[in-house]
Simulated assay, not measured.
Amino acid sequence: MQITSIIAIFGLIWVMCAFVMLPFGVKTHDEAGIVKVPGQADSAPANFRPWRVVLRATLLATVLTALFIANYDQGWIKLDDINIFPSPPER
């Protein structure tokens, strides 16, 4: 596998992991006991830490990319293993 392919796969997995990690550890103003600004949405985060999301997404994406590359090289799970549509019976 080429390095450019690995970087592209890592980038795709990283974006997916970042979106998955966004809601973890975030509290609203009501949950944190902080007074809301007039006109503020009830669901607005009170303690959003973007660097924590970046760190968690990077760690998870690194592990998942390493597993993807290992599977690509070793062939643990192939396309035939996850085919949900079986071949039609022969006549």
Rank of each mutant, 00 (worst) to 15 (best):
F85L: 14
R52G: 14
L60E: 04
I9F: 08
N83W: 01
S5V: 07
N71Q: 03
D80F: 04
V35F: 03
L67V: 04
V53K: 15
F68P: 01
R52K: 15
T58W: 02
T28H: 10
W51A: 11
L67I: 04
L12M: 07
F19C: 15
D42Y: 13
I84Q: 01
L22V: 14
D73R: 14
P89D: 06
M1F: 08
V53Q: 08
I9N: 07
I34S: 05
S87Q: 08
V54R: 02
P23C: 11
D73W: 15
I9Q: 05
Q2W: 12
T58D: 02
T28L: 11
W76Y: 08
N83M: 06
G39S: 05
I34M: 13
F10S: 00
Q40V: 04
F85R: 07
A32H: 12
L60T: 09
N47K: 01
I13V: 15
F48D: 04
L22D: 11
T62N: 01
W14K: 05
F48L: 14
P86R: 06
I3L: 12
Y72K: 02
V37L: 09
T28I: 10
L12N: 03
T62I: 06
Y72P: 00
V37P: 02
S87E: 05
H29W: 07
D80N: 09
V15L: 15
A41S: 13
V63N: 03
P88T: 01
V20Q: 04
T65H: 02
D42P: 12
D73A: 14
D73V: 15
P86K: 08
R91M: 00
I3C: 03
G11Q: 00
V54F: 11
W76L: 09
G33C: 09
L12A: 08
T4L: 11
F19L: 15
P38D: 07
A66E: 03
C17P: 09
K78H: 03
G25M: 06
A61C: 06
A18R: 07
D42K: 15
T4G: 09
W51K: 14
D80K: 12
L55A: 15
F10W: 08
I69W: 09
L64G: 03
L12V: 10
G39Y: 05
I7D: 05
F19S: 13
H29E: 02
I7F: 11
A61F: 06
N71R: 03
D42Q: 15
P89W: 01
K36F: 02
L55M: 12
A46Y: 14
K27M: 13
I34L: 15
P23T: 11
